[in-house]
Design a protein around this nucleic acid. Structure first.
Lengths: 175, 175
DNA sequence: CTTAACCTTGACGCGAACGTGAAGGTTCCA
DNA sequence: TGGAACCTTCACGTTCGCGTCAAGGTTAAG
């Protein structure tokens, strides 16, 4: 099977390289944002055209969608995202090591990528846990208020104080 | 029982009012941020001293901690937080309606507060679901890579394409 | 070869969320 | 009655994450 990228050969085999605007439409980002992410070292386009146009492959698309989600859905800063995605240089190296068919290097590149994803999963899980904690906190406040409401209906005093078994609404440890 | 705040009376009964720096230490925020939050209408100190010092009660502390968590842990913007906390004016009104002992108004104030918390819970749950979706997404990518790894170990082709039952990594619906 | 549509690299602008003085008043303890 | 430590209100500076021209070069179609 033919296996070589870029140039003008194989114009239907390799799913095609997209220009920045198409990528923008596809990902819901703006061209400006995509260039900015590149400037911040979050990704580099798979290739450049003869006239220096940025050209993105399917892998870049996936990465950009992930970046967008991390940013807009999860609310991470670009600096945090940079740490999570870890060093774009490594990615291009991996990309190259895949073109070169050395199986040993391919294997290590894959396990490295998996390790990175595992760390991403850890970070995301921590985030979800924090949000969960806030949900629990809000639920506790809700319960507290309902306690007061019950007091009121029963004609008791509106005496304040945590009411029932809710001594400290938790939420410890900053940073 | 004597029931009147501020002045210099009852110096041990009402858990004490804190000045901005103590509040900052307690909440992990900076005085500047706290003032800024006030400027943005997220909260108002329970009282002011004779010389216009901001004085915060336990309720303010709780609110500020919640704001801090929404901002730093959950990553909401102050505008979003403002919507979630909804109109500080309502809060001071509620606070007043509680001092005045009208039980009917107390009841409606409580149910209103509970409704607000329910809306907060909805927002937080949506957020958690988005993060969960990203976790699922990352897990899918992990599986994809492990598929490739298995191919490699079995001496198969590194042919790309989603590999197994992972046609589209999902993650739909923006905004 | 022209031309419209797209791209490039600057560079300036902007709102959000504070940081950081400056200049002066307040508290409180000795 | 001092101070030292805190507070107040401006007001300007900063970083982040882009938006928005400006002045050109590139591509694909006709």
């Amino acid at each position: 099977m033919g296996h070589d990228a870029a140039s003008t050969a194989t114009p239907g085999t390799e799913s095609r390289l997209l220009r920045i605007q198409e990528v923008a439409a596809e990902t819901g980002l703006t061209p400006r944002s995509i260039r900015y992410y590149e400037e911040m070292g979050l990704l580099a386009p798979a290739a450049r055209s003869e006239g220096a146009y940025r050209l993105y492959d399917a892998d870049d698309l996936e990465r950009l969608r992930f970046i967008g989600a991390l940013r807009n859905d999860a609310g991470f800063s670009l600096a945090e995202i940079g740490q999570m995605l870890e060093d774009e240089q490594a990615r291009s190296r991996n990309r190259v090591q895949f073109r070169a068919g050395d199986p040993d290097r391919q294997r290590s590149a894959l396990t490295d990528a998996i390790d990175r994803i595992d760390r991403q999963l850890t970070t995301l899980a921590r985030k979800r846990d924090r949000v969960d904690a806030m949900i629990a906190d809000a639920a506790a406040r809700r319960a507290h208020l309902q306690g007061h409401l019950a007091d009121l209906e029963a004609g008791r005093s509106p005496d304040h104080a945590p009411h029932a078994g809710v001594p400290e609404p938790s939420v410890e440890a900053r940073q």
